[in-house]
Design a binder for these strands. Sequence first.
DNA 1: AATAAGTCGTGATCGTTTTCACAATTATAT
DNA 2: ATATAATTGTGAAAACGATCACGACTTATT
Lengths: 214, 214
Amino acid sequence: MDQNKIPQATAKRLPLYYRFLNNLNHQGKKRVSSKELSDAVKVDSATIRRDFSYFGALGKKGYGYNVEYLLGFFRKTLDQDETTDVALIGVGNLGTAFLHYNFMKNNNILIKMAFDSDPDKVGTTIGDVPVYNIADLEDKIAGVKVAILTIPASEADGITDRLVEQGITGILNFTPARITVPEHIRVHHIDLAVELQALVYFLKHYPLETNRLE
Amino acid sequence: MDQNKIPQATAKRLPLYYRFLNNLNHQGKKRVSSKELSDAVKVDSATIRRDFSYFGALGKKGYGYNVEYLLGFFRKTLDQDETTDVALIGVGNLGTAFLHYNFMKNNNILIKMAFDSDPDKVGTTIGDVPVYNIADLEDKIAGVKVAILTIPASEADGITDRLVEQGITGILNFTPARITVPEHIRVHHIDLAVELQALVYFLKHYPLETNRLE
DNA sequence: AATAAGTCGTGATCGTTTTCACAATTATAT
DNA sequence: ATATAATTGTGAAAACGATCACGACTTATT
Ligand SMILES: NC(=O)c1ccc[n+]([C@@H]2O[C@H](COP(=O)([O-])OP(=O)(O)OC[C@H]3O[C@@H](n4cnc5c(N)ncnc54)[C@H](O)[C@@H]3O)[C@@H](O)[C@H]2O)c1
Ligand SMILES: NC(=O)c1ccc[n+]([C@@H]2O[C@H](COP(=O)([O-])OP(=O)(O)OC[C@H]3O[C@@H](n4cnc5c(N)ncnc54)[C@H](O)[C@@H]3O)[C@@H](O)[C@H]2O)c1
């Protein structure tokens, strides 16, 4: 693949840039400056230029960036042309919300199947996504490399082991459990309760500072 | 409040430590080392010791940390004794999931009211939380300082302005819109589509590296 | 043509966060 | 008692990330 030179912080901003460039393109905008982008996505303009510069000289001095060119470039870089299939495990409150939401709108990611242990849920279809029995995980999941975990925390370790066994390489974990995986598996943890608590903590302890976390 | 000496990165880990210490305490564990904590929460042990050290010498050399003492200390530090009221705006897929979830379980945060524009939702109660008409925002929201935004992106700016007008100081924004707020308002952005895309990007471009994002 | 205004790309700097590594201290075993 | 093992707290270094600031170039204006 590409040279591993892109900082993680930059990589995390790429989808954001991509989405905004897409909007601009739909609006028929032909050029954009790092300053304009900065106002829109709330990232310092020097940071944006630096981010882009990891991919080469994409802009023109005195002019800015050509929206269509930049968009095309990022489309390739972010592999927007091929779809990544995802499996969702745990069709509860949160899982159901994700199934109803169409991640495809702006995006190359498709939740292709879901699993649950509840007989009332197994066999249903939510937002076009079939819900299978978790017992059949090993039969159904072939080829899927990314999983979203929205099961109770107590189930997280057991299910993770089975996913890893089946060749999953990335997990987006919404449970509060900090799961243990082999070195080569990437886990991204989104802990909504922690996010809320951290926000409240900041409000109480850093009352008037410059804000805007990321 | 406290001295603003605690790094933001540390502050974001505090809720995590707190939750895990709580578990240990319930299990009747009396002492814990930074190494054990590290294995559980997947944060380097030196980082944990450094984090704790910002609050003074909480442990004992050669022994570790006393669970009950540490827990009590963090309870105070994180203001776990007083409840923070939160308003949720937008009772759709995501908003409904949050209302059903009981943030109070481990936690000092309470979603006290919700707002929506849909007449079918206004007047209902979801998970004990009343859903008010967004038109009545200004009447009902007095005293609430934190809001969760789960409305369509197109509504985000308008609602944000009204929230700021009413004295909100912190916003947890789940919409893809990058909202504009005055300096003194803290916004934390959780962009689920971006998180997924970033995960997929990392899988493709950093295949075998040391993993585990945060 | 010449000048002014706008904008990129990047060296250098700065601030933050993580990690190393070890003296100091405590607990445990013999 | 003494020796051994465990573990903290932290100075120092390394890694990472954000921002400044400016030369080089492009476009627009007169
Ligand atoms: N809903 C929220 O707002 C919220 C907020 C923060 C964290 N979380 C976390 O997200 C996770 C999901 O939350 P939720 O509110 O959707 O929970 P939920 O109880 O509504 O849903 C969990 C689902 O997982 C299914 N399940 C249980 N065991 C399973 C197994 N072994 N295999 C497959 N499916 C199984 C259940 O049948 C259920 O449908 C939890 O870990 C929760 O702590 C949720
Ligand atoms: N559901 C997901 O999985 C998901 C994933 C990523 C991002 N998001 C984002 O989260 C937000 C909410 O997503 P969702 O799936 O819950 O959407 P949704 O359409 O299910 O819910 C939006 C809710 O907001 C209400 N609403 C609309 N305008 C309003 C207004 N002016 N005032 C008050 N309420 C109003 C609607 O009546 C509806 O109940 C969106 O911005 C979406 O892009 C959702």
